[in-house]
Design a binder for these strands. Structure first.
Length: 355
RNA sequence: CCGGGGGUCGCAUAGCGGCAAUUGCACGAGGCUGUAAACCUCGCGGGCUUCGCCCUUCGAAGGUUCGAGUCCUUCUCCCCGGA
């Protein structure tokens, strides 16, 4: 199990950044790493070929959404999501824990019971019951390399009682996930990550980590919304240096850089792709909201320092135009750019790897 | 020339006595953080001491009315029929 992760270089890092690697059945991911979200088995608007060109090391699939569509049977027929989407590099999956919060808790589309989550598919009306065991089954069928336990996040404005409950239930479900994972031969060579809950409370974060550590996992993730740097830094400090430290669902470039320096290894976020689709581009010169009228006649590239397809081929004026007329090439090129921006940022952060 | 319809904030629309005036598009700005998001929010006559107030607006001019985009008269322009 120890050779799945390698953070030996941590001791030599003076900037706090851990340079290491995650070894999976589908290859090695150098860390710190950013992983774009391919929720339904595709990074929106991009092909696997695009992802290769951009230099994406790993993608995240959402086992909750893939369970509903296309369903496990079809994925089995393709020997996993990699074959289905023709992505043969490492794959990370989320369990559906976040959907507990976003769909069930916030949008009242189901209910959480002690055993799992009851909900209806909003498109078909079909009833589902997601248990910790089902979450593992989903992810193993998808053939994920890095699995995440089913956790129980709560709203950022939850009260103390809710937050304690979130920790308790997350531990309970994590244990069941651990057992299901260990009792399945398909888990060979794969990693299982647990999620630390506890909102802004150091006591709860510590309690959550300790309960999970007792069960034992390959890595630990920060669950819920990171509301201040203090709690994020405190939480990363709880995780031993030989374990994978996964900052879930975060964030904007400046946050990723900051969290990397705190010692987090792995990141995923919808921000670069969603914001790209909405016309917000990250550049070495700061944010560019390409729909703004000031770019109408701007013949410079979006980012003079970028080597992506957008920046080496087209002007700001052209991208502005594409967005104005809702030509899908616009959001697509913007997605390529933002992801390339993230990839290059991560490469910069990994620069001392092996030294 | 006769008959009918119509001119409303860039364009298109609603409005049938209490209206600075509907909705869509366009335009302006902002927000998105383990994706029900190619989405959502706000603004869009002018000004101000901006939880409100004051100007100027619905082709033009006059009239009726406490009050008119809305009713009446004339003028003007556009569209559709018929000569």
């Amino acid at each position: 199990m120890e050779d799945k992760l390698d953070f030996r270089l941590n001791d030599t890092a003076k900037d706090g950044i851990r340079r290491g690697q995650i070894v999976t059945p589908h290859g090695v991911v150098k860390t710190p790493a950013f992983v774009p979200d391919a929720t339904y088995g595709a990074v929106r608007l991009l092909s696997v070929n695009d992802l290769e060109n951009i230099g994406i090391p790993m993608v995240l699939g959402n086992s909750y959404h893939l369970w509903l569509r296309p369903g496990l049977d079809l994925i089995r027929q393709h020997a996993g999501l990699q074959d289905f989407m023709n992505w043969h590099k490492p794959l990370l999956t989320d369990s559906g824990g976040y959907q507990v919060y976003s769909l069930v808790y916030e949008k009242k589309m189901g209910r959480v019971v002690d055993d799992g989550i009851e909900f209806r598919d909003h498109l078909t009306g079909d009833k589902y019951f997601l248990t910790p065991e089902q979450a593992i089954e989903n992810q193993l069928t998808i053939n994920s390399d890095v699995l995440v336990v089913l956790d129980y996040p709560v709203s950022p404005d939850a009260n103390d009682t809710d937050n304690e409950y979130s920790v308790q239930r997350t531990t309970k479900w994590a244990k069941r996930c651990r057992i299901a994972f260990d009792n399945d031969s398909r888990s060979e060579g794969k990693l299982l990550v647990a999620v630390i809950q506890g909102a802004n409370s150091k006591e709860l974060r510590k309690q959550s980590y300790e309960e999970l550590a007792e069960i034992g996992f390959d890595g630990y993730a920060f669950g819920g919304h990171p509301e201040n740097d203090d709690i994020v830094e405190y939480t990363v400090g709880l995780i031993p240096k030989e374990k994978l430290r996964y900052m879930m669902g975060s964030g904007v470039p400046s946050d990723i850089e900051k969290y990397t320096k705190m010692g987090w290894d792995l990141f995923d976020c919808v921000i670069p792709t969603r914001n790209a689709r909405h016309g917000l581009l990250y550049t070495s010169q700061g944010d560019v909201r390409i729909t703004n009228s000031k770019y109408q006649l701007d013949k410079s590239p979006v980012d003079i320092d970028c080597d992506c397809e957008l920046c080496t081929t087209y002007t700001r004026a052209y991208l502005h135009h594409l967005f104005r007329v809702k030509e899908q090439l616009g959001p697509r090129l913007a997605s390529i750019h933002n992801l390339r921006f993230y990839v290059r940022m991560m490469l910069r952060l990994q620069v001392n790897y092996g030294s």
